[in-house]
């Protein structure tokens, strides 16, 4: 196993770069981070629409979230893969396809996290803002969202962990990420799939476990940080 790692660590880390496209773990992280960053505004818009008093905003947003959450990610990847060339008029690479699919998919999940964060705020916060005479947008952006997002930071890190694992599906459309790199190594060695995919598993685990621990750490800090509810510490 160590020998495989010794001979192929660069492929695992950055793919064929600099002789080919960048890939490997670097691409995995890049795609996950990009997807999450790009889906953020959509997620906020969806969350606000779902909490809107207006039916014409609430119903479509709710429909979108339920539809996306009711379908497997691989469906979105296939759709994006086959539909976006028709829309754009040219072939779309695996990386772009995966990022687009992830943005749509993660926006639905992230919007639910943000919605929970908003609904979890005491009603008095909005009432206090209203009482000052603040309108909807300043109330949302200066009072509601800063608190909701702060409280939801641990959940968002967890969502990032899910996204990292989901990028492995990029393998089926040849997005050059770490699973793709592992399969390349496996194709060269041919006889050691257990070891190769063992390394892959370990890579994912170390990364995701570290991030999950970070989420727990943040959770502990946020619960005591503002002198809010010091008793709320999540079981380790």
């Amino acid at each position: 196993m160590l020998e495989i790692l010794e001979n192929n660590w660069l492929l695992f880390l950055v793919g064929q770069y600099p002789h080919g496209p960048i890939g490997g773990l670097t691409m995995t992280l890049f795609m996950a981070a990009t997807a999450l960053a790009l889906c953020f505004p959509f997620a906020i818009a969806l969350a606000l629409a779902r909490l809107s008093p207006y039916r014409w905003l609430r119903l479509p947003a709710t429909a979108i979230v339920h539809t996306v959450r009711g379908l497997p990610l691989i469906m979105f990847i296939f759709w994006t893969y086959f539909v976006s060339p028709l829309v754009i008029g040219r072939a779309v690479g695996g990386v772009e396809t995966l990022v687009i699919a992830l943005v749509v998919y993660e926006a639905a999940y992230l919007s639910e996290i943000i919605r929970a964060g908003i609904e979890g705020l005491p009603a008095g916060q909005v009432e206090a803002a209203k009482s000052l005479g603040l309108r909807y947008w300043p109330t949302t952006f200066k009072v509601v969202l800063p608190q909701a997002l702060h409280n939801m930071l641990p959940s968002m890190v967890s969502q990032f962990v899910s996204t990292i694992k989901e990028t492995s599906l990029g393998y089926v459309i040849s997005a050059h990420e770490v699973t793709f790199a592992a399969s390349q190594v496996n194709n060269v060695l041919l006889t050691q799939p257990f070891e190769v995919y063992g390394i892959l598993a370990l890579t994912y685990f170390v990364l995701c476990f570290a991030l999950t621990s970070l989420a727990r750490f943040i959770e502990r800090r946020t619960s005591s940080g503002r002198g809010g509810a010091p008793g709320v510490i999540v079981a380790a």
Binding site: P122, G124, Q125, A128, S131, L132, G133, L134
Partner: peptide, 20 residues
């Protein structure tokens, strides 16, 4: 209503300060 609320101060039992 927002203009009217600016002219009427309201103090809550639970303070409702913005904690952030």
């Amino acid at each position: 209503i927002n203009r009217l609320r600016q002219r009427v101060g309201f103090v809550f039992q639970a303070y409702n300060l913005f904690p952030h």
